[in-house]
Nucleic acid binder design. Sequence first.
DNA 1: TATAACGTCTAA
DNA 2: TTAGACGTTATA
Length: 738
Amino acid sequence: LQQFGFSNSCHRRGKRVATVTSPPAGRRLAVTLYTSVMQRAANRPKPKAGPSAAVKLPSNRSASGARRRRTRCRKCEACLRTECGECHFCKDMKKFGGPGRMKQSCIMRQCIAPVLPHTAVCVVCKEAGKEDTLEDEEDKFNFMLMECSICNEIVHPHCLKVSDASGVVNDELPNCWECPKCNHAGKSGKQKRGPGFKYASNLPGSLLREQKPAKEEGDATSAARRRPERDETPRSRDETPRSRDETPRPRGEDALQRPQPQPLTLPPPLLSPRPRPEDKLRKKRKSALLHACVRAAVGDSDQSLCSSPQAGPSSEGGSETQEKGPSRPKARRKRRLPNRELSRELSRALNTQIQETCLANENRQPLKVEPETENEEPHRLFRSGGEPGDQRHLKPREMNGTPWELRHFYPGPITPLGFNRSMPTNRPPPPLSPPKCVQVERHVIRPPPICPPPDRLPLRDGKMHVAQREVWMTTFGFLTHRELCVCMRVCKTWNRWCCDKRLWTKIDLNRCTSITPLMLSGIIRRQPLALDLSWTNISKKQLSWLINRLPGLRVLRLSGCSWAAVSALCTSSCPLLRSLDVQWVEGLKDAQMRDLLSPPTDNRPGQLDNRCKLRNVQDLRLAGLDITDTSLRLICRQMASLSTLDLSYCNHINDQSVNLLTAAGTTTRDSLMDINLSVCNRVTDHSLTFFKRCGSICQIDLRFCKQVTRTACERFIAEMSVSVPFRLTEDKLLQKTC
DNA sequence: TATAACGTCTAA
DNA sequence: TTAGACGTTATA
């Protein structure tokens, strides 16, 4: 069979699937054989399946070679994690008592940079990658294995004898490109994804939509321009002559072109619909001058961060970052279509940090000044010779004087993360989907890495600033989020430091009219402990997406959101959540509360988990909901840690409800410390009698309860004074005094 | 050989 | 479109 170009493999049950490719026709004939005769030698490096051999592939695959399965890099943050034991896939694992059918990696361990198997060899010379043996970056690139995402061939760029076309390096995946042959032939292929892409992209809120092809072509250059072009790999090359406004960069800096973070770009809808004049010119030249266009566009990458040209970050800062001499290896960064932009950036904010970690682990050259976030100026410090405050770069990044990140992170008035109980004024408009033109590819967004940021600020002269990071951090701690956003634009290091999650423990997007994908990625990057999304139009997908990526979230405020969105909590796990605010959630009634508090539905044998998803919530805000005692019974039963409960404006709450909460045998009886029953018109003086049972009660808010009298409150105080001193701080607001 | 899990298929 | 299943590959 091998003689005839079959590859084969042993199936556990003796079933054998082999696929043969007919080289002349380029067609692959799938043959399924039921035999147990052939055994593939264990550990034998399987010859790279070129045109003559292939594993089973989809019949419609147009590729000329078989894909090699990638495997973990074992270095990235995700790979270094241990299994969470709680995710869907962990629960499937036998080690966690599951049936083991799904055979998937823990969702927290999905490798960020899956690598080619070490058995992979060049299809031409049959040798493995040799980049580790080489010093020069160019050599490294030429002698590393590159897998084409279209034809699947794995080659050393050096082994290709193609001189008139360049490969397009895919910086999403190590050792992946569109090879010169395919690129030159104009082929397009489905982008190869790493492990976890499937599942991560399927997670709710993955923001995946189909891209309308319109404008793609015409916008090719601007698309490229939008993409902040930066090398993440040393193999990324561009032979394009640099644009006229670029300044030369010392060649030595190429050595710094290790995988590097890239700034986030704005999603298409936030980009200017009006191309800049130079863009139009570039479009005209795009055939022969495509590289030049891309190159020049790269220089505008930061500008692409903004929704309009005048809003964009520096237009020059990145220009000089990528230029290479014409002798450089002929591989360029992939020209991205608009629908890829956002997804790339969504992941980049996380992934690049992981990659940095990997590189650091490999004792590679430490990263220099590289933007790594949505609004950072690429290479500003070193590459352009500019200074942190170089206004040349900063000016274009502002729109109406507002920094980019602020405009997107704080579309509305900045408010402190409120835990207020103020009555809502009006419900926000019905949740709107993100703009339809936000076209995002399936793209994994993984939890952020724990990646050590630089400890000192690199200066232009190559030295380090005397102050250590923690000193700066202390200073940054005094800044508002708005100010932090401004600081993040100064340089890469500040960008990194200012994004420290210690500075963003609370993120408040209350009443933000539109939650955009970019904002979501910004949230993920900052990993807040408290997130206020009250009165926003966040969708279920978005919320679910967020929750799945904020494993440490303690406080979640969803006041005034739709039940459609809040229902994301039914399927997502947030075990550390301590405070949940679902006040005034439209459509949240008893039935929905039941869903919210019910155990996970996926209770297979061995996976029984009858615990409430919100079992650790201590602070629950249910003001303004049409819930009844039915919900309260569930709360009593499921939320053993509940200490603060807001039932204000709940018209169905009455004395019996209070009786339930304080009944013997309930956990709330002992755990409840603070209860808000203000404007609960069915609550009467009698409820105060029930509260005497509560051992921990510290505050009882009965303000504006028509049927509660001040006399009864005073009587309560008098009767409780023997054990617990209370006082009336306001009319019908009882507070423990001590 | 055992284990992990990638990548594809398919039913819902 | 998506969740689930599982054949099969990669690695120890």
